[in-house]
Design a protein around this nucleic acid. Structure first.
Lengths: 350, 350
DNA sequence: TTCGTGCGTGAGAACGCTCTCTTGACAAGG
DNA sequence: CCTTGTCAAGAGAGCGTTCTCACGCACGAA
């Protein structure tokens, strides 16, 4: 008998078929599948055997139709084109999210709107009830999606602290404490004229990391000198200009805290070109602990962020919010860790 | 009247309600929504107005239940832990995929199995019919998923050429031609002792890029010298060892083609440490055209790959396969482009 | 015995959609 | 005037679940 050509027939085992094989009703099979306690042990065994034998898998569409939940979560990555792709932040975060989501049998639906027209479609899609909640990852500040979804009553968790007092759950890395520990380390190793190359100061990481720098200076008894704070904007161009300027204005500079590894790498190049020895003359510390920190010369001391953990925590928070009867608002700040490498090796044997 | 606490009620506008408002039957509304031509213009207008007014959005679960297709596509990223994350390949590819998928109203379901146990679950999930097809992105070779899914009759498209003659559709970048053009460029600018630092030779890109190197040598009339081929394995450690060895064995070396930018960057460091001037003494060319190529000193000539385009093409191919009545097998190879920068600047003014 | 009480199980109605079939209106042809 | 064909529109079944009830049985108390 000829096999019908084309696509193989999907495994269409239904609850009904399992019920027949097990000699029970559909309802009972459903109970077993969903782990209800109201089933006698013997029947449960019987049903499980039938499920096994037929290779039954619940039809998610049918289930979703009646339960009115999709068991799926949207991850919205709003990406301002450019160079940010150099950063392995997204794969890491996605991995964390994915891991927590599959552990709880939720599907991950990925949305990457490119244009603002796309963003409108995404908002519609999300509020149409196709997903139970949304994880928002956005690097630019003025993302209108978060308030819009929150207003629509959709559970939402953000990656990173939102800007202006937006009341929505988020998970962030402790940028301030991370920067503080980096600069404290520089002070502890005897550096005294410490500059910072900052990120854009209209973003939370930019602000927080500079604040951490200031905290450390204050705690270390060093005076704050605004001319030691140069705007780098997280770009190579910005960092280069900042480093050049700092060298020109502060010949006695003996340490630089760059708010990102990429900027730190650029700073290292500028220093090398200027004939300054790192770490002998000047120590350099970055932030992010990317792979690039290992391929600079010398290797870069940097602040490590638990990105996967951040993703996992976001997913956990969101699921919690979805399952909760009332809206929940939670903030989670994850600790960072200073990874010491050659670029800040001691002046003071400490 | 008190608003019921908790989650806002989802927009539960149904076909029925639209039908009532428009004064037609459910079937007619369905026809309008799905763009059937068998509707009179006046009724269509009426229905569209009602849809608009109620903010109707089709319930995907219900639709999927009856059409027996999910209109969603899985993207499976099988990631061997490690350093490969440094590469922005995934975000780029995902963006391309996402773009093509949303343009055709398909959902992107992302799966990132971590363990082999996860991979088993993924295989089950996929064959359970929750998705219409799968896009497989795997950096390691012996991924059992592709043959398994293909055997189950699930439409599949791979990112990159599969290893041993696996008969499945894929989209790849022209690694061979890319490498060839890079090395041809070196020859054209007067280099004569050209080494290559290869990727792992059990992977398609590793093999293909070395082959491109050999092609260019042959075409340029240069003799193939196996001692000029050093294994770098796409890792910094491998590249460093390779570069050190090449310098030791070939004092007259005047060019290096590294099969990845990361390896090229490492090679540059080694050369700098050895006091060799780039590009005056030795030219260096990489592959991938990552952001890192811009932050090396000097900036790195590299082979650019159309990653987004690759993603888009994969999505297109898969949707085509899903819609086709019979299984389709297609291969698409996308051209690469050599981006010339300072690291290979001319010896011969050409 | 009689009457709850509790618990395992089944019957059957949704859920919102698509799709086949049927109906009815109208025009054209004999 | 009746038949035939065409085409818009409606009726209604059915997709695979879950979930509310109702049922029946066993058990213990009156």
């Amino acid at each position: 008998m000829a096999q019908p050509s084309g696509r193989s027939l999907r495994a269409n085992v239904t609850l009904e078929e399992v019920a027949v094989l097990a000699g029970v009703s559909r309802a009972t099979v459903s109970r077993v599948v969903n782990g209800s306690p109201r089933v006698s042990p013997s029947v449960r065994l019987e049903v499980q055997a039938a499920v096994q034998r037929l290779g039954y898998t619940p039809n998610l569409a049918a289930r979703s139709l009646v339960t009115r939940r999709s068991d799926s979560i949207a991850v919205v990555i709003t990406q301002p084109a450019g160079q940010v792709f150099a950063d392995p932040f997204f794969p890491r975060l996605l991995r964390g999210i994915s891991s927590a989501l599959t552990a709880r049998d939720r599907q991950l639906i990925l949305l990457m709107p490119e244009s603002s027209a796309d963003e409108g479609r995404v908002a519609n899609y999300l509020t149409a009830g196709h997903v139970d909640g949304a994880l928002l990852v956005s690097l630019h500040e003025d993302d209108p999606l978060a308030p819009r979804l929150a207003a629509a009553g959709m559970p939402v968790v953000l990656a990173g602290r939102p800007p202006k007092g937006l009341r929505v759950s988020y998970v962030d890395v402790d940028n301030r404490q991370g920067a503080q520990s980096a600069v404290a380390h520089l002070i502890a190793s005897g550096r005294r004229v410490i500059a910072t190359i900052t990120g854009p100061l209209d973003t939370a990481p930019g602000i927080d990391r500079r604040q951490g720098y200031r905290d450390a200076l204050a705690e270390g008894g060093l005076e704050l000198d605004r001319t030691l704070e140069a705007l780098g904007n997280f770009t190579p161009e910005g960092a280069e200009a900042a480093m050049v300027q700092l060298l020109a204005t502060h010949p006695d500079l003996d340490a630089v805290f760059a708010a990102s590894d990429q900027m730190a790498a650029t700073a290292l190049s500028v220093l090398a070109a200027a004939g300054r020895q790192v770490p002998a003359d000047i120590a350099v510390v970055g932030f992010d602990d990317l792979a690039i920190a290992l391929s600079t010369n010398p290797q870069l001391t940097s602040v490590h962020q638990p990105i996967e953990e951040m993703g996992r925590e976001m997913a956990r928070l969101l699921i919690e919010a979805v399952d909760a009867p009332d809206p929940v608002l939670r903030r989670v700040i994850l600790a960072t860790e200073l990874i010491q490498r050659a670029s800040s090796a001691g002046r003071l044997p400490h």
